[in-house]
Design a binder for these strands. Structure first.
Lengths: 104, 104
DNA sequence: AAAGTATATCAACGATTGTTGATATGGTCA
DNA sequence: TGACCATATCAACAATCGTTGATATACTTT
């Protein structure tokens, strides 16, 4: 049983488009990919991985976090980020409904 | 067995980011969703569905087609577009590797 | 308290890209 | 041929957004 995805009543499309726009940025996609393979990473570790200016890393992390795709945890000076698995799976599921052939 | 997705040697990320950027546009996402439920549709049918200017529809269709996500077929005056299922599934698969928890 | 470290915020710039209006192309019908 | 229809192309504008430099915040250490 599949949910309709492009009827006028459907409201998933705008949200899904937002999600896709946010993860379509290459550096953000790398961050997600990097964090998928780690439990959690502090900003400086992510920075070391991406070799980008610190403020730019912070910016992208904020975008991801504001969209609830990342969790953050403060410990001393450092802030550790990790994937919000539930949310990510949610969007992935919605996306699969759209991208997969629409079996009824 | 999963493919690495964010090692320096990996080249999937830039391509995947392009794909995501292209389908993150709301009207294009609607087009994909609309075509998923139809076999094929001509431009005027898509236009009627989206209620957007004709040239804008053509523009978005071109973006999708240039990225090989859509097929097109000319019949008389009309041009029929349909999903390139293989390509779409390809990208969806790559994306799932990135978005799903990285089981080894 | 002062200095140092990790991270966040802010304003400004530049590039990309969605949108629009006008026009072109290419096919059909009378 | 000429009128008409469906679609595509092109130039210009507007808005979004990634990037940068400078600065602020918050915590730790001496």
């Amino acid at each position: 049983m599949r949910k309709d995805c492009c009827n006028e009543g459907d409201s998933n499309i705008p949200l899904l488009a937002d999600f896709l726009r946010i993860i379509s940025e290459e550096n953000r996609l790398k961050i997600i990919c990097f964090l998928q393979k780690s439990n959690e990473r502090c900003v400086c570790e992510i920075q070391e991985f991406l070799t980008l200016p610190q403020n730019l890393i912070s910016h992208h992390l904020k975008v991801l976090r504001d969209f609830d795709l990342l969790n953050s945890r403060k410990e001393g000076l450092k802030v550790y980020y990790s994937i919000n698995i539930q949310e990510l799976n949610n969007y992935n599921e919605i996306l699969n409904q759209v991208l997969s052939e629409g079996e009824k």
